[in-house]
């Protein structure tokens, strides 16, 4: 019995050699909930000088939710410690991804967030579409024409058909 237990632990160590992801997630959430409850909530939720009932406090619901997260994260941490981790087939999909692929994705997000008003909806749409097509290693030139057509069509759809204003781009004004 003892031998089989040792074997099992060896297999677990050899196969995985890591903590259960649930424990890591639980530990991070315990930390986040702790910071929220003991620093953020008291500092960034202002209470009025007098209240009719403690449950009417602006801090009541956020703190209740914070304690819920803290206790459940602890449960998750403990649950992860008593259960061996399992590899899933999906994990293999994320191994060995070309760096350029996700760097271009992050750059796309940054362009939309930081230069949307400067480049305009059409300008940033074209730029990001080209970057993301490059990230997918698309070679056909005709596909890159779509990177121009789609932002123009979608922008016109928003602005003229649905009356939703989008920026033209301060750089082109």
């Amino acid at each position: 019995m003892e031998k089989s237990e040792i074997n099992l632990s060896e297999v677990t160590e050899r196969s995985y050699g890591r903590l259960n992801p649930n424990s890591v997630l639980g530990a991070i959430l315990v930390l986040v909930a702790g910071i929220f409850l003991f620093y953020i909530a008291p500092t960034y939720i202002n209470e009025p000088p007098s209240m009719q009932h403690p449950l009417l406090s602006p801090r009541f619901l956020p703190q209740l939710a914070g304690w819920l997260v803290l206790l459940l994260s602890l449960a998750l941490l403990i649950e992860g410690l008593v259960r061996p981790p399992r590899h899933t087939a999906a994990e293999k999909l994320h191994e060995g991804i070309p760096v350029l692929r996700w760097v271009l994705m992050i750059a796309s997000g940054a362009i939309y967030m930081l230069f949307f008003e400067e480049l305009g909806a059409i300008g940033s749409g074209i730029l990001v579409s080209v970057l993301l097509f490059l990230a997918s290693d698309l070679r056909k030139v005709s596909i890159y024409l779509l990177a121009i057509v789609f932002p123009v069509v979608v922008s016109l759809l928003f602005v003229h058909l649905l009356n939703v204003p989008l920026p033209v781009g301060t750089l082109w004004e």
Partner: peptide, 26 residues
């Protein structure tokens, strides 16, 4: 690979349209 850049574009335009504010894109 063709569909998702367009989906992202819809996401960004839609988020911006709420308050005409890049804060919402972030």
């Amino acid at each position: 690979s063709i569909l998702l850049p367009i989906v992202l574009m819809f996401c960004v335009y839609g988020a911006y349209a709420v308050n005409n504010n890049t804060f919402d894109i972030g």
